[in-house]
Amino acid sequence: MRFQTFTTQGVALKERYEAWRERAWPSMAKMMRTDKPSGEFYSHIRSYQLGSMVLQEARMTGQTYTRTSQLIRSDGMDGISLGVSLAGRVHGETAVGSYKAGPNSVLFGDLSAPYTHNSTNAHYVTLVFNRKDIQRLVPHIDGLHGLVMTGKDAAPVVRQVTSLLQQLPDASDETGAHLGDGLTGAFLSLLNSTGTVSLSEEAHLSRLRTEVRWIIQQRFREADLDVARIAAMSKVSRATLYRAFSDGEGISAYVTRVRLQMATAALADSGDVRLISEIALSVGFDQVCNFNRAFRRIYGCTPRDWRHHSRTIGAAA
């Protein structure tokens, strides 16, 4: 997956802030005012584009951001942010008060509202969502700017983001977009847990789709993973499950796609010496003939042809 990266590692201590500041990214100089630190300063940042969402992972200390009303008027940035604190601490001020966030906490932010944000030895992940995408599902999200969530409320998002950071370096752009959809669902679940907003029916269905996709990603190897089992694990009726997946790819089709994606990766791996039948069973198909039929329907060739072609190209490269 494509990403941008920046680090002050190897830069002299006295020159780090200026080296960081002179970069439009990641200093975000056009949308933030920053103050030169009086003490230690470092910044290691990596940014990914997940569909319409931006994910930025940062390890930093000594940074102070201020988003002013003047900057808001001039740059037109209007996203909703979710900050996930994994280590260290951050604190800041909004128009209605101050906030503090330590490890394993989540902070809501609104880029259309002023605030100041400080970091100390922080490992911090920022997710920036398109406001229109969120408001389509949650029409009224006022009053969340600067809200910090901790403990069991924040734990699901913290776990998902931590897992995601391990997956992203090897993920494709297409997979990244799907992972972004999953984070949107996690964001909606977190909004719902605040008790301060009312989710639309579509938002509830979007959240359900995220949960179901997560279940499938974890259990696709189980041959008996069918709609009835998934509905039971999701604690909804099969009718609700079908409704959640009615507008796009069906739930059974999604299970098949996940299994086939894992199979194609194994077939292309020259170090994987298993028989094709063994690979088929390992990714959740109960019969090899069903695997062959699904593979040909999706990829237009047999698994054997795919393996030969993929490994021939790999050897030539």
Results as ranks from 00 to 15, higher is better:
V158E: 10
H178N: 10
G97A: 02
F187R: 05
L183G: 13
G182C: 06
L147T: 14
A95H: 03
V96K: 06
R131P: 05
T150S: 04
T194N: 07
V148A: 00
G97P: 03
R159F: 03
T116C: 11
T194C: 09
N104T: 00
V90Y: 01
G182K: 04
L147C: 10
G151C: 06
T126H: 10
L205Q: 15
A154E: 11
Y124N: 05
N104G: 00
P103I: 00
A171N: 15
R136N: 13
M149Q: 12
V158M: 06
V157G: 01
P139R: 04
L179P: 01
A155F: 10
L199R: 11
T175Y: 07
H145W: 05
T116G: 09
P139I: 08
T184L: 15
G109N: 02
K152M: 10
T162G: 09
S172E: 15
S163F: 04
H204I: 13
G146D: 05
G195I: 09
N121D: 15
D181Y: 13
E174Q: 14
Q160I: 01
A101G: 04
L205G: 07
P139A: 04
F129N: 02
R209D: 12
R131N: 08
V106Y: 00
G97K: 05
A171S: 15
A155D: 15
S193D: 10
V125I: 15
L165K: 06
A113M: 11
A155V: 04
L147V: 13
N121W: 01
V138L: 04
R209E: 14
N118L: 08
